[in-house]
Design a protein around this nucleic acid. Structure first.
Lengths: 227, 227
DNA sequence: GAACTTTATCAACACTGTGTCGAGAAGGTC
DNA sequence: GACCTTCTCGACACAGTGTTGATAAAGTTC
């Protein structure tokens, strides 16, 4: 059953929250809910969110439209649940990357981090695109995504500041400002690539190009190499 | 009256296209059309496109909903017309920038170009945001924007290649790939700033940060400054 | 200046999609 | 076997889109 969003905790759904019942918490119900989510993901592979109706989701899950509303308050809520899970998975990558970053070469760590993140979203292309679409009209989606970005920005800011502190990176614009621009660049470039927009990078070029710009932005200066 | 899109020509509307009539081409009609466009722009200052209905536009222009359809085939068409004009204005900035770029210091020209573009879109914040929103659901808007981006990417690619050719910029990822990523970064960063998203750059920081990253990406290398 | 054309207007309609209500079925519990 | 929950859906009320057809007003033609 759909629960109000507890912020991007996004852990596993907690089974049998109320009462002390063993685990017989319902069967049909959970099946239906899962079925709706699966239908949504499947339809998103075929067409954009705006062209999917509540009726499509209900039909796909084998229930009537009113019954859909027993499980989710709206189409947006379904997608938000799916996004929430994707974000949780991506958060795993992020922690992994931070660990790599802390112990090894920061440049290699950075590349690894960007690669993992890219892989996480590419593997759920349809959901990623739906998230961007939903963000345009839904405040909750906007808020969720904002928190995701904020997390990355904070991490990147810390990395840049650390590299500057140890003299590996030259001074420049405030680290947080750089981090915001770089993170947003990644977001946009990856989106365009997933969506197959007209000027966009080929899937297999995305990472190389982004990493190059990140490294130049962080470690290079704006001075010409030769004079 | 709304005409089918002749590609982003987007010059001034041609007055009195058919016949050799002096200039009495209608009065009420053009007024209404203008009135609808003005209403749309005004409402976009207040709320997102998705929360504006055809009825709102009709009411604002002092006509009934069916009459609206005499002037425009849809809400999207109205916004597309407005975007078209903004894009035309921005195209002016672009040419201006290219001229500066050709005759003077490329770095200064680049900065000037980015500044002009930024100014052009900032001055029509609401329309810029509406364009991004419309792009999500409307193929024509997507196409129009794609052509705009394509133009910039082509220009930037040429600049990067020229700078590399004259030895002012080091080799690196393909110039066009860099151009795509940089242009898309600008798009996203500016959008976030205009929309006041949660991690986003302050209006007065946008230009400095973007220019810094552009210059580092183009002129810097990915090697550390110190070792 | 009457007949005719073009331009403009809108009430009424048909349609699509959303979300709610209330009546009931299906199963578990005491 | 009365009694909850859980679940289901037909029927409704709404909001929004886009179309039709009847009609008015203005401009053109002879």
């Amino acid at each position: 059953m759909y629960r109000e969003y507890p912020m991007p905790t996004a852990a596993k759904a907690d089974p049998a929250a109320p009462g002390r019942g063993r685990r017989t918490t319902r069967a049909s119900g959970d099946d239906r809910e899962r079925s709706i989510l699966e239908t949504a993901e499947q339809l998103l592979e075929e067409r954009p969110l705006s062209e999917i109706s509540v009726d499509d989701l209900a039909k796909g899950a084998g229930i009537s439209r009113p019954t859909f509303y027993f499980y989710f308050p709206s189409k947006d809520a379904v997608v938000l649940t799916i996004i929430d899970r994707l974000v949780a998975a991506a958060a795993g990558s992020r922690e992994q990357a931070l660990r790599t970053l802390a112990e090894g070469d920061p440049r290699a760590g950075l590349r690894q981090g960007l690669a993992d993140l890219y892989a996480a979203f590419r593997s759920r292309r349809a959901v990623t695109l739906a998230a961007a679409e939903l963000r345009m009209t839904n405040p909750e989606a906007r808020e969720l995504w904002a928190q995701v970005l904020e997390g990355w920005v904070a991490d990147v800011t810390a990395v840049i500041e650390a590299e500057r502190a140890r003299g590996a990176a030259p001074a420049g614009e405030p680290a947080r400002d750089m981090a915001i621009a770089l993170v947003q660049m990644n977001e946009r470039v990856q989106y365009a690539s997933f969506a197959g927009e007209s000027p966009s990078l080929e899937q297999d070029r995305v990472l190389d190009v982004l990493v190059d710009i990140w490294l130049r932005a962080i470690y290079g200066s704006a001075e010409p190499t030769s004079l």
